[in-house]
């Protein structure tokens, strides 16, 4: 019996479908969710969500959020989520360079701008990593 799975971010629905297993970057570590998992609520870290269904695998990046697990349903409220196949590598690279450049200038460490830049950098790093890993796996 597959699990219904849904990934939503604040401005759109990223994924909706069925899955045999879902791997999540929970705050206490990466976890795999199989059907009939006991009810669980967990916050998410920056990382990758893998959804496998009938031998096919889809990978999403997620920049934090909350996941609700029910025996037959997983709902992921992501702060930002993206299908790896949709990521534009060059844009991610240039975003990373820009963030690094700005961070190397003197910005007060406790300012909002600094925190924003830091999370932007983390996001682009995550996206670049994700794409690399995804492409490698596809190559095999």
């Amino acid at each position: 019996m597959p699990i219904r799975c849904e990934i939503v971010s604040q401005d759109r629905q990223v994924f909706k479908g069925e899955a045999d297993i879902i791997v999540l970057p929970g705050s206490a570590g990466v976890m795999g969710i199989l059907p009939n998992h006991s009810p669980l609520l967990t916050t998410l870290q920056y990382g990758l969500i893998t959804i496998r269904s009938k031998g096919e695998e889809q990978i999403f990046t997620v920049a934090g959020g909350v996941a609700e697990v029910q025996p037959d349903q997983v709902t992921i409220l992501a702060d930002a989520a993206e299908n790896v196949a949709e990521i534009d590598v060059e844009r991610a690279e240039s975003a990373r360079r820009r963030a690094e450049e700005l961070l190397s200038k003197d910005i007060p460490r406790d300012s909002d701008a600094f925190l924003n830049l830091q999370s932007a950098l983390r996001r682009s790093n995550l996206r670049i990593d994700a794409v690399r890993r995804y492409r490698q796996r596809k190559g095999h």
Binding site: S27, S38, L40, L41, T43, G65, V66, Q70
Partner: peptide, 28 residues
């Protein structure tokens, strides 16, 4: 869709999760 009253497991804990959800829900 779900009327389960089953007790959830929380990671890291209930307050942290509630906090995150409420902040985001208000934002959205």
């Amino acid at each position: 869709t779900h009327t389960t009253h089953s007790v959830f497991t929380y990671e890291p804990d209930q307050n942290e999760i509630l906090n995150q959800i409420i902040l985001r829900f208000t934002g959205v």
